Computed example of a mutant assay.
Amino acid sequence: MFFAVARRASRVLLDRTTPSWKRRYGVYANNREGARQAVRHLFRHGDRCIVYVNGPADLSQSIDRRLGVEDVMAEKGIPQSALAVLDGGFTLEGAYAAMSAYLERGSTQSQPLRPVFAANDVMALGVLRALKEHGVCVPSEVEVIGFDDIELARMLEPALSTVSQPAIEMGALSAEVLLRLLRGERPRVRRHTLAPSLRLRATTRAL
């Protein structure tokens, strides 16, 4: 995503990189660190496997969030074979279909139920729907964490645990940088990276 004014060719990238992103001004959330926070929490009870529902593989958010998952697995000595990656396409329907297929395969292969980390909240909704339809109780049987902290995450039943991005701060900082560029200024800092935070709600068990 970017803000652009063609007349002045001023652009500020917002939480998504492009092939030329290192030459651009941009404001980003630390997607990799956000994923680390989520997965560390899901592994706190000693789990040794996880389901990760990813978005389009070529998008920077998908890449960074998967790297965060792999970071935690490496630091805990968990082999990559313990990671089940499902393609949810950043959509509710895609995540629902992928999770449903995974659960149906598992029912015939006696696979253990794994905690689920979805790379955005919309996909987490699809995951929750699939789990409910397959009779899996959240969070007592499977814990679920999303990413983004959209408004609906707080309104669900059960309310969704998620990684919250500092969206207001990111938007304000992006606008500030863009206005400075439009005034002909060249800010010294090209890339601003803001920290996300884990919001624990009802789709994860108490500590």
Rank of each mutant, 00 (worst) to 15 (best):
V142F: 08
V142G: 09
V142E: 07
V142H: 08
V142T: 09
E143W: 13
E143D: 12
V144E: 02
V144P: 01
I145H: 01
I145K: 00
I145Y: 06
I145D: 01
I145G: 01
I145S: 13
G146Y: 06
G146V: 02
G146F: 14
G146Q: 10
G146W: 05
G146T: 10
G146D: 03
F147I: 01
D148W: 02
D148I: 05
D148A: 07
D148Q: 06
D148Y: 02
D148P: 02
D148T: 04
D148S: 08
D148M: 05
D149G: 12
D149M: 13
D149P: 08
D149L: 07
I150M: 10
I150N: 04
I150S: 08
E151N: 10
E151Q: 10
L152G: 00
L152R: 09
A153Y: 00
A153F: 02
A153W: 09
A153V: 07
A153R: 03
A153Q: 07
A153N: 08
A153D: 04
R154F: 09
R154Y: 10
R154V: 11
M155D: 14
M155E: 14
M155V: 13
M155W: 14
M155R: 15
L156E: 03
L156Y: 06
E157P: 03
E157A: 15
E157I: 11
P158K: 02
P158V: 01
P158Y: 04
P158R: 00
A159G: 11
A159L: 10
A159N: 07
A159P: 05
A159K: 11
A159T: 13
A159M: 11
A159Y: 05
L160T: 03
L160P: 03
S161R: 01
S161C: 00
S161L: 05
S161Y: 01
T162Q: 07
T162S: 13
T162M: 00
V163T: 10
S164V: 14
S164N: 12
S164Y: 09
Q165F: 07
Q165S: 02
Q165P: 04
Q165V: 13
Q165T: 11
Q165M: 12
Q165Y: 10
Q165K: 12
P166Y: 00
P166G: 10
P166H: 12
P166C: 02
P166F: 03
A167G: 08
A167R: 13
I168K: 12
I168V: 13
I168F: 14
I168N: 04
I168R: 13
E169H: 01
E169S: 08
E169W: 00
E169T: 09
E169M: 05
M170A: 03
M170Q: 05
M170L: 03
M170H: 02
M170T: 01
M170I: 07
M170N: 02
G171K: 03
G171E: 08
G171P: 02
G171H: 04
G171V: 06
